[in-house]
């Protein structure tokens, strides 16, 4: 096998796995009859507010992700890469991801994949795409000899999709229902 082919196979597999994750979530969301009920967190007025705030913190951490990635890749002029930036990037990412999981479980289990208006359809599609893209990112991360543009591209997709998810859910909630705990 030639080197380029081997390399292509090596990033084809993570992308295929990620695509399978996204499609599986979408199919589950469509086939499973929404229950309208899922576990709730104490201290909030309702499950929607829990989701809104988890998503908001996740998005804020996503901006930490973007900033720390830019610094790591030396794209911020005048800032020397500090030694702790990798740790910051890894852990802010982990926490952001773990915060999105309860939101997604609630979405998929209680609400399902819906398409009754543009916002809801876009949100449903982005939600499935997010976990697919994140899976791709995680599977590509430990591999060596990948093209230099691949990781920033996948990371950028994960970031963009998460911001899109927030805009179509939490921002909508804040503007139609109001900012509340």
């Amino acid at each position: 096998m030639t080197a380029p082919t081997a390399s292509a196979v090596r990033w084809f597999v993570p992308i295929a796995v990620g695509a399978a994750v996204a499609v599986t979530l979408g199919v589950y969301g469509q086939l499973h009859t929404p229950t309208g009920i899922a576990v709730n967190l104490a201290g909030f007025s309702g499950p929607l507010t829990v989701k809104v705030w988890l998503a908001t913190v996740a998005v804020l951490l996503a901006f930490v992700q973007l900033g720390s990635a830019l610094v790591m890749f030396g794209k911020v002029p005048g800032i020397a890469t500090p030694s702790w930036i990798g740790t910051l990037h890894r852990w802010s990412g982990r926490v952001a991801f773990l915060l999105t999981v309860p939101v997604a479980v609630h979405c998929l289990y209680a609400v399902g994949f819906q398409s009754f208006d543009a916002r809801v359809l876009i949100h449903s599609l982005l939600g499935c795409l997010f976990f697919g893209a994140f899976t791709v990112k995680m599977l590509i991360l430990p591999k060596r000899g990948m093209p230099g543009w691949l990781l920033p591209l996948v990371g950028g997709v994960v970031f963009t999709v998460l911001v899109g998810l927030w805009l179509t859910s939490a921002l909508w909630f804040f503007t139609t229902v109001g900012v509340k705990i």
């Binding site: 229950t35 009920i37 899922a38 991801f97 997604a104 479980v105 289990y109 599977l139």
Partner: peptide, 26 residues
């Protein structure tokens, strides 16, 4: 090297726990 995989598995475990709790709640 295994950090990202552990992250993924952690998310999967959390999802499984929440799903089980949700099924009980429903």
């Amino acid at each position: 090297r295994y950090g990202p995989l552990i992250t993924l598995l952690g998310g999967l475990t959390l999802a499984a726990v929440l799903l089980t709790l949700s099924m009980t709640a429903a």
